[in-house]
Write a protein that binds this DNA or RNA. Structure first.
Length: 596
RNA sequence: GCUCACGUGGCCUAGCGGUGAGGGCACCGCAUUGUCAAUGCGGAGAUCGCGGGUUCGAAUCCCGCCGUGAGCGCCA
């Protein structure tokens, strides 16, 4: 329909007759001369209508009318250039105008300068996407896919699709369920990830698999969480941890090089889980700033202060924090309570080196004496303490660390800090977590997932001390976000059974849930491992967006609601009947059959 | 499930115990020959999220509900 794209026109096109299509971005009507900013996917160009019939017809144009125009490219009169836009040197003098489609008045302005609420924008996402910001985010996401595919194809990977109507996968989240009409009472689960399928593909000899895979988890919302989300899912045979990590680095460095103009220094540094927790109070530390936790359990071993008579005492220093007004220090208490802590003890280091704050008087003289040095605090700093179980206290301090960095402006927003977190524990005690979704019923559950291999050091001994067993697992972290994670998998049925046993999964249960996988392992399953990248989150980081919603074409809002289609929706009684959602199982039924 | 914040014409927003609920954008009409977030004049458009309460009087204070967002729990 068109000869050129609006945003592509430059001074060198002057004199050419062009046909353009696009939308009315803005109209500036001066009576005898009317300017239209015509927008298509490539950008915007100014179209001029002068007196007579053209001006009369242009007068009736409104925002977002869809047009086809024929005109000549002309250099703008001297002094009228617009340096703000790429096409600002030229304008189109129109000889023909066709309105392809009119537009109803807009529900919200598609103005680059005015910000409309998210709810209304998502309800009319097709309009929101005409704006340059949202459009750019989706185009960038397409590039993210392209670059990853290029890297993976260069490494001989095979792109394979796996089912979305399947059986529950053991990722630990709640499943989305789909009733099976042909088998009333039986349900499909949407995959939380293609985990088991990709392992089966390794058994199937595909050796190098990847997929940009949609995953589904029925959990509550966050700004960085959606009920359906995308992973770049990768699995490789005959590899160890270093091979997967090297491949993962190739993908990520290609993305950041092309899309963020950032050369990631390879190899990406590694930090052990234990180190990350001890120093940053997080398994996804933000390494863009220096502040670290200091453990003071030893220091307070003989403390008279009862709160610090705990299995773990640690602190984090807020530079310059001693000058915070009382109100701000109280706000920190509120902040800590929000996180389920009792409070956040603090000590202020005054300029003369003495200690202030409510708990200082509870400490012994000796403790007060050496505290600033032990905590690494300088005069004028504020020291926050947490005491209790190591995990809880460190998590609180880790969160405080991030909060301090924000409040003190310690974060360089242009920085990219990558790291691998490695040497995860294989198991996690179930009394530390709500075990309603844990696989199995034992005292231990998998920290990563149930198919993660113990490291070679732990593989023979993990039953004796499950808490000490290390997993062959790794997470990639960027600026405090976990952007990917993976592991070397168990490929032997006997090891898999032993792991299930530690997790309290009986032979019968594991056979019933994962029998197909255990069966597959009987037939010479190769050693394999892989990684999955949180694709939405990576796109969000690359786009410098605040929310996952910005990099998803049609995102859900809170509560899993789609503002555009109003899904989820009620179903008709007929659908209800056919779907068999009200099927009541017979009271007594012998076990067996494929259905569960 | 918990905590906090917000909900005022289509959009953005002011008002925080007595107002004719004010403004900007959009919309309709008129004017307008160099703008680029054009401009000027005129017009229409609001049960102030819903329900209850306090008060002589509520958009404004209180309670409940709904919706949205952020955080926690949960979730890699």
């Amino acid at each position: 329909m068109r000869t050129h794209e609006a945003g592509s026109l430059r001074a060198e096109h002057a004199g050419q007759t062009v046909t353009l299509t696009g939308w009315v971005a803005r109209r500036r009507d001066h009576g005898g001369v009317i300017f239209i900013d015509l927008r298509d996917a490539s950008g915007v160009v100014q179209v001029v209508f002068r007196e007579g019939e053209m001006a009369d017809r242009a007068h009736r144009l409104r925002s977002e009318f869809c047009l086809k125009i024929v005109g000549t490219v002309e250099i703008r009169p001297e002094g009228n250039e617009n340096a703000e836009i790429p096409t600002g040197a030229v304008e189109i003098t129109t000889s023909d105008l066709e309105v392809l489609n009119e537009s109803a008045p807009l529900p919200f302005p598609l103005d680059e300068h005015v910000e409309a609420g998210e709810e209304i924008r998502l309800r009319h996402r097709y309009l929101d996407l005409r704006r340059s910001g949202p459009a750019r985010a989706l185009r960038m996401r397409s590039e993210v896919n392209r670059i990853a595919r290029t890297v993976l194809h260069a490494n001989d990977f095979v792109e394979i699709e796996t089912p979305t109507l399947t059986r529950s996968t053991p990722e630990g989240a709640r499943d989305f369920l789909v009733p099976a009409r042909l088998q009333p009472g039986s349900w499909y689960a949407l995959p939380q990830s293609p985990q088991l399928f990709k392992q089966l593909l390794m058994v199937g000899g595909m050796e190098r698999y990847y997929q940009i895979a949609r995953c589904y988890r029925d959990e509550d919302f966050r700004a960085d969480r959606q009920p359906e989300f995308t992973q770049l899912d990768i699995e490789m045979s005959f590899v160890d941890q270093d091979d997967v990590i090297a491949l993962g680095e190739q993908v990520i460095s290609a993305l950041w090089k092309e899309l963020a103009d950032h050369e990631i220094a390879l190899p990406i540094p590694r930090i052990s889980y234990a180190d990350a927790m001890a120093r940053y109070g997080s398994d996804k530390p933000d390494l863009r700033f220096e502040v670290e936790l200091t453990e003071l359990t030893e220091y307070f071993a003989e403390t008279p202060f009862r709160v610090f008579q705990a299995p773990y005492v640690g602190c984090v220093v807020m530079p310059g924090g001693a000058s915070q007004p009382r109100k701000k220090l109280d706000a920190w208490q509120e902040w800590a309570k929000q996180r389920g802590a009792k409070g956040l003890a603090y000590v202020l280091v005054t300029e003369d080196g003495t200690l202030g704050g409510p708990i200082a008087k509870n400490l012994s003289d000796a403790e007060r004496e050496g505290l600033a040095k032990a905590a690494g605090a300088n005069p004028g700093d504020c020291v926050f303490f947490a005491a209790g179980q190591p995990n809880d206290a460190r998590a609180l301090l880790g969160a405080a660390r991030v909060e301090i960095a924000h409040r003190c402006g310690l974060i360089d927003e242009d920085a990219w800090a990558f790291a691998w977190v490695v040497d995860f524990p294989l198991f996690e005690a179930t009394d530390q977590i709500g075990d309603d979704v844990a696989v199995g019923s034992g005292k231990w559950t998998a920290l990563h997932h149930a198919f993660t291999s113990p490291t070679p050091d732990s593989i023979d001994t993990f039953e004796q001390d499950p808490g000490a067993a290390k997993a062959y697992a790794y997470d990639m972290v960027c600026n405090g976000n976990e952007i990917g994670g993976g592991s070397i998998r168990i490929h032997r049925a006997d090891v898999q059974k032993r792991v299930f046993e530690v997790m309290g999964l009986t032979e019968e249960e594991s056979q019933e849930k994962f029998g197909f996988l255990l069966d597959a392992f009987k037939y010479g399953a190769p050693p394999h491992g892989g990684i999955a990248y949180g694709w939405d989150r990576i796109c969000m980081l690359l786009a410098k967006a605040d929310s996952l919603r910005d990099v998803i074409a049609f995102p859900k809002s809170g509560g899993g609601f789609d503002p555009l289609t109003s899904a989820p929706a009620q179903i008709t009684p007929q659908q209800r009947k056919e779907a068999g959602v009200d099927f009541k199982p017979k009271p007594v039924e012998p076990k067996g059959e494929a259905a569960s």
